[in-house]
């Protein structure tokens, strides 16, 4: 076997073991431990943002700046693709 494969297998197994260890320390599926931030959002979204959809209120109001970043990412991807294919013309 190649040296690279051995090193990779070893590293992968260590990473898997540690990931599994850490996964079992998280809260179990369906029972989140700390929820103060999300509870605040669910309770106040109708009053503060006037929106019925909690997710939209987070996306555009509470974390609206992230969404601006996300739009920027799409914009830069478009600019990048157009830059790469700029010589492609009829």
């Amino acid at each position: 076997m190649e040296k690279r494969t051995v090193a990779g297998a070893l590293a992968f197994s260590i990473v898997v073991v540690f990931f599994l260890f850490s996964i079992f320390l998280l809260h179990p599926f369906g029972k989140p431990g700390q929820v103060q931030m999300d509870d605040y959002i669910i309770t106040h979204t109708q009053n503060e943002t006037g929106t019925n959809n909690g997710v939209t209120s987070v996306v555009f109001d509470y974390r609206g700046f992230d969404t601006l970043g996300e739009a920027t990412i799409l914009f830069s991807a478009v600019a990048g693709v157009l830059l790469l294919f700029r010589r492609v013309r009829h």
């Binding site: 929820v35 999300d38 996306v59 974390r63 969404t67 970043g69 996300e70 990412i73």
Partner: peptide, 14 residues
Amino acid sequence: LPVPQALTLTSIVI
């Protein structure tokens, strides 16, 4: 919880 859904939405577009 709504916040992880918003984060995931961002992550999908990324």
